[in-house]
Simulated scan of single mutants.
Amino acid sequence: MVTAIVVAVLGAALVMGGFAALSKARDRVAVVDVAWGLAFVTIALLEAIVFPDTHSWVLAALVTVWGGRLAWHIARRSRGHGEDPRYEKMLGGPGWSSGAGKVITRVFLTQAVVALLISAPLQVAAAYDVRWWPAVWVGAVVWAIGLFFEVVGDAQLEAYKATPRESRPKILDTGLWGWTRHPNYFGDATVWWGLWIAGALALGWLPGLLTVWAPALMTYFIRNVTGAALLEKTMSQRPGWDEYAARVPLFFPRPPRR
């Protein structure tokens, strides 16, 4: 288990350290958003290389599909844009001019530590043998549901933004966005519940219980701290938002209401 933890630390350090150097060269802290998914991909692949069994490679494949798609989506979406206002507010100034130590500790080191915590089910799964293979496939199904919400939600949002303002509704409330106000964030959280089931819970009840805090922590942050909660503050200023919020749940989806 110690080796699995060391491997995860190495993977997170490689990705976040490399992207910190890239961020400094470009003077743009927001590149860390691309590093987020790639950190998990690197951790999962390194675990599979060091502990080469079918289970580790299945998990590595699932994480690579999710994390690679997320990194590609964020990189494409942010191309040509300046610094993200979130990081300017966090650092108290634009990019690296606020201080290298502040950028490294508050952004890159923090995200590296969070990635290590969230990836705990992958680390445990690499170190121990599978006990319940059916749980691996159940977890893969849950992972696929989450990926569906994330990918389709992102695609529907892109199509909405590509429509001229004068011919589109003020608020996107069709497709998955009529089931939940944040289908992409709900999908992100669901992906990690699937990886927990396929990774740690497949080892037995005890490993599952000892690591259930990892997907719970991911869900909490996505829903209440960094993802949906931040976006709600901006979106709630739009005309028609109150009516939309009354019909459509914040996070967990349900059939649309009239």
Rank of each mutant, 00 (worst) to 15 (best):
Q123N: 05
K233P: 06
A8L: 05
Y185G: 15
S236A: 14
L157M: 06
P121H: 04
V138D: 03
R257I: 00
A30G: 08
E150I: 14
D129A: 15
N184L: 13
P134N: 03
D33W: 12
S167I: 14
R69D: 04
R28W: 09
S167T: 14
L59R: 06
A229K: 13
G37R: 01
A115D: 10
D154K: 09
H55C: 10
M90Y: 06
W36T: 07
M1C: 11
A159E: 12
V212F: 11
P85G: 06
K89D: 13
L147K: 08
G178C: 05
L46E: 10
Y87H: 08
A126W: 08
A120R: 02
W57Q: 00
D242H: 14
W72K: 10
A127H: 02
A100V: 12
W137K: 00
A13H: 12
A25Y: 03
M16Q: 15
N224H: 07
L201E: 09
Y160S: 11
R238K: 09
W179M: 15
Q123M: 13
V113D: 05
A120E: 02
K233E: 13
E83C: 08
L157Y: 09
V58L: 14
T54V: 13
W193N: 06
P249D: 01
P85D: 08
R86L: 11
L206P: 05
E243Y: 06
I118Y: 03
V124W: 10
P253I: 00
R86G: 10
A198L: 00
I145P: 08
L59Q: 10
Y87A: 09
S23F: 04
V41E: 08
I197T: 07
S236F: 00
R28D: 11
P207E: 06
L14T: 02
T190F: 05
A228M: 10
D242T: 07
E83V: 12
L230R: 13
W66V: 02
H73D: 04
L70K: 03
I104D: 01
L22R: 03
E232D: 13
F51D: 09
F108W: 15
A127V: 04
I49C: 00
V225E: 13
V34I: 15
D242L: 10
I145E: 01
A198K: 02
A44P: 03
Y220E: 07
V9Q: 07
A200F: 04
V29S: 06
V41A: 10
A135C: 08
A228F: 02
F252Q: 01
D33P: 08
V136I: 12
I145G: 08
A200L: 08
A189S: 14
P255K: 11
V7N: 01
V65L: 12
W205G: 02
A202H: 05
Y128C: 00
V34G: 03
L172Y: 02
H81F: 11
T226E: 12
A30K: 11
G95A: 12
G208M: 07
L10F: 14
F19Y: 15
P164M: 09
L70C: 01
G208E: 02
A200K: 11
L38I: 08
G175N: 05
R76E: 08
A71L: 10
L38R: 05
H55R: 15
P169L: 09
G80R: 04
A189R: 07
A127Q: 02
G227C: 05
